[in-house]
Amino acid sequence: MCKIISIANQKGGVGKTTTAFNLATALTVKDNKVLAIDFDPQSDLSKYADYDNNDDKPTMSDLLMGKVGIGKAVDIKDCIRHNKLNRIDYIPSDINLANADLILSGVLSRETILKRILKNEIVNQYDYVIIDCNPSLGVLLMNALATSTGVIIPVQTQDFAFDGLNTLTGVITQIQDTINSQLSIIGVLPTMVEHTNASKRVLEQLENIYKDKLFNIRIHKATQAVESTQLRKALCLIKNSKLGQEYLDLADEVISILA
């Protein structure tokens, strides 16, 4: 059965897209078939995947609008691109997704549009779908959570790391209670970990609050993450990358939890 994982945190700069892209690639290295979905108007995952926005094929926003009859109906197979270097299939995003809250405000069951889109034979052929969510608590995040098996919450181990986390977990609880009882928090992922007192302090707080929901793996801060995005190449495919190994270990932990 296809497992759908949202990578979510309404706080920006926590390594959300880096986690989504590198987890997706790490899972393919582990012999899984993976589809990555860019569900963020900023389109950072699309850029990471070296998306050519002049290819004239439909994007995630075309698929979303077409599903509710606002635009031309689109087949999901026409939206899927393949990135040979990183071995993943992906659906790119564009800036039009920024209008989703306004455009979908009057649509019935607007929180389940993505769920209806992904209830598809083509999607079921994948082992994992990784959704890179936008950093807000609007209709796009609601759609991602409504269709997901689980959610991973990246948290930067710096001061103010907890800003909004209670609100996010509250939204997850509401989704579980009303729309998607199968949704679970797979884990809280410490990112950009450093050998500083601040980082150690935040890690201790995360351990006290989230206990068994805190991943064992720690994603450390490294300049190689920036180099990876510039190369459009996942960290686990860069030779002797310690950060790449951390994402491979994260993939193992995710596979184990969901098993």
Rank of each mutant, 00 (worst) to 15 (best):
N143V: 04
A144V: 02
A144P: 02
A144M: 03
L145F: 06
L145P: 03
T147L: 15
T147S: 13
T147F: 10
S148R: 04
S148Q: 06
G150L: 09
G150C: 11
G150P: 07
G150H: 11
P154G: 00
P154M: 02
P154H: 02
V155E: 00
V155G: 00
Q156L: 00
T157N: 01
T157A: 07
D159T: 12
F160I: 10
F160C: 05
A161W: 11
A161R: 01
F162S: 13
F162C: 06
D163S: 12
D163E: 14
G164L: 05
G164K: 05
L165P: 00
N166P: 00
N166W: 03
N166S: 13
L168G: 02
T169E: 13
Q174V: 00
Q176N: 04
Q176Y: 04
D177C: 01
I179T: 14
N180D: 12
S181P: 04
S184C: 12
G187V: 04
G187M: 06
G187D: 08
V188L: 08
T191R: 00
T191G: 00
M192Q: 14
M192S: 03
V193K: 07
V193C: 07
V193Q: 06
E194S: 13
E194T: 14
E194Y: 07
E194H: 11
H195L: 09
T196S: 15
T196G: 03
N197Y: 10
N197W: 05
N197I: 14
A198H: 13
S199W: 07
E204F: 06
E204V: 06
E204W: 01
Q205W: 10
L206C: 02
E207I: 02
E207V: 02
N208M: 10
N208C: 01
N208S: 14
N208Y: 08
I209K: 13
I209M: 10
Y210K: 03
K211S: 11
K211F: 05
K211A: 10
K211H: 09
K213L: 11
F215H: 03
N216C: 01
N216Y: 07
I217W: 08
I217D: 08
I217Y: 09
R218I: 02
I219G: 07
H220P: 05
H220Q: 13
H220D: 11
K221F: 14
A222C: 08
A222P: 00
A222V: 01
A225Y: 09
S228R: 04
S228T: 03
T229E: 09
T229N: 04
L231A: 15
L231K: 14
R232M: 08
R232I: 01
L235E: 07
L237C: 08
L237H: 12
K239D: 09
N240E: 13
N240T: 05
N240L: 06
S241G: 08
L243M: 08
L243W: 01
L243F: 01
E246N: 12
E246K: 10
L248G: 06
L248S: 10
D252Y: 09
E253W: 12
I255A: 11
S256Y: 14
S256Q: 15
I257E: 12
I257D: 11
L258S: 09
A259Q: 15
